[in-house]
């Protein structure tokens, strides 16, 4: 097989379902648009704050912790993605795969312990 000639036909139904689900969501909103009420006025269109007038800006400063969690997520999720192909071929490679992956996990474990000791998981 020449490179670029492979067409993943088994993914074709997935593509159709994706298109159908977008059409489904759009369809519900559009059909609803034909029958529903439209009576907007100024107070109704203000952000909801339990009936009081809005105080301050809606997008205030927020905790730095959310950034740290996002960064840690990227690291650990990429680690998980590296584990997928390893799990698939593990039976064929055997001991070498086991040792290599335990070393890989150990390196990440060191980072994990460091993050824990720096109180990245405390709120």
């Amino acid at each position: 097989m020449t490179p670029g000639s492979y067409i993943p036909t088994e993914y074709f139904p997935v593509l159709i379902l994706m298109l159908v689900s977008i059409a489904f969501g759009l369809g519900i909103i559009l059909i609803g648009g034909l029958v529903r009420l439209r009576r907007p006025y100024k107070e109704k269109l203000t952000p909801y704050e339990c009936g009081n007038p809005m105080v301050g800006a809606p997008r205030e400063q927020f905790s730095i912790k959310f950034y740290i969690i996002a960064m840690l997520f990227v690291i650990f999720d990429v680690e998980a993605v590296f584990l997928y192909p390893w799990a698939l071929v593990y039976e064929n490679i055997g001991l070498y795969a086991l040792i290599a992956m335990i070393l890989f996990i150990d390196i990440l474990l060191a980072g994990y312990v460091y993050a824990w000791s720096k109180k990245a998981f405390e709120w």
């Binding site: 909801y48 704050e49 809606p58 927020f62 996002a70 997520f73 650990f76 999720d77 998980a80």
Partner: peptide
């Protein structure tokens, strides 16, 4: 949404979803 409640809810929810996904 540009509202305080949805902003806080969105932040919390995204941090929670990504944490448990790992």
């Amino acid at each position: 949404s540009n509202s305080k409640y949805s902003f806080l809810g969105g932040l919390r929810s995204s941090a929670q979803v990504v944490s448990y996904e790992i």
